[in-house]
Amino acid sequence: MADIVSFPKRGLVCVSGPDAATLLDGLLTHNVEGAGPEACVYTAMLTPQGKFLFELFITVPEVGTYWIDVSEPASFAKRLSLYRLRSKVTIEDKSEAFVVGAAWQTSALPSSAMSYPDPRNAQLPHRFIAPRADLALGDDAVAFQAYEQERLSLGVPDLGADLLVEKDFILEGLMDEMGGVDFHKGCYVGQEMTSRMKRRTTVKTKLCRVRFDGAAPEFETPILADGWEVGRMRSTGAGVGLALIRFDRAQKAISEGHELRAGDQAVQLDPLDWMVVPA
């Protein structure tokens, strides 16, 4: 197996300047003060209605400079620029010059790389950011497939892959359980809906690890029980995947003896012990 893997849909956006922290803190679900060269702040950017936009991993290579590992970096940089107004901030998409990825063996990384534990789950490989010119990447498709299988086996969502942009909510994506939301920080875009969902415990639908035999169901395949939809498939690997499950409906169907099926495939719910399962 390869020692490192690059993430094909993720890139690096650099935000710097005297107003950088203030700008980011006013937009994201976590303050950025905890970020450092080897410490990551895991956070998200939302719509004003509280819907998911971007999942972010933020590190600080030097004071006043924030490196943001994000999917669709060009779209994120453009969205961030809309909020800049007169702030003294520079926003740069550096994805051409840098690689974002993960390392099973950090010793395989060049000295110019910055690596840190994945804040979502300590069992995942360390994430890294490294100059593209300093990396010798092998068969990345095989390495990425191995990484995805490990991620799915651990039941860890990749929100950029497992939530629908501007449709799903981050609490449905287990971001509370993974430490991606600070419910005590100041205001940010989308805070009102996120706080209301947490306070009123209205999160009935969540991503959940599922098991199946045979061919993996396609993305967004409806999961049915006795003809009623109880969820939708999201990312899949060999025999395991994540699905967005409406738990009250699914649990009622299971208690009545109905099988859950995604197309021709039977699926079984297999939630992790760290997940808060809706009652």
Rank of each mutant, 00 (worst) to 15 (best):
D226I: 10
I254E: 07
L163M: 15
G257H: 03
A130E: 06
T65W: 00
Q149E: 07
F144H: 15
I91K: 01
K167V: 07
N31V: 07
Q265Y: 03
L23V: 08
K252L: 12
T59D: 00
I68A: 01
G173W: 02
A250D: 12
I254L: 12
A253G: 13
R199F: 11
D264Q: 07
D69C: 03
P217N: 09
G173Y: 04
I245H: 02
A143I: 05
M197V: 04
D118E: 06
G239R: 03
R261A: 06
F247L: 15
R120I: 02
V70K: 00
S195G: 15
P8W: 05
G26L: 10
G180L: 03
K88A: 10
L135P: 06
A108W: 02
A2E: 15
A243R: 01
R209S: 10
D93K: 03
R196I: 08
E166D: 09
G180Q: 02
D168S: 04
E229G: 09
Q123T: 11
D25K: 08
V189M: 14
D158H: 15
V100P: 00
I170P: 01
T194E: 11
A253S: 14
M193F: 10
M197E: 08
P48A: 12
T221G: 05
T202D: 11
R234D: 01
V240E: 11
H258C: 07
T221R: 04
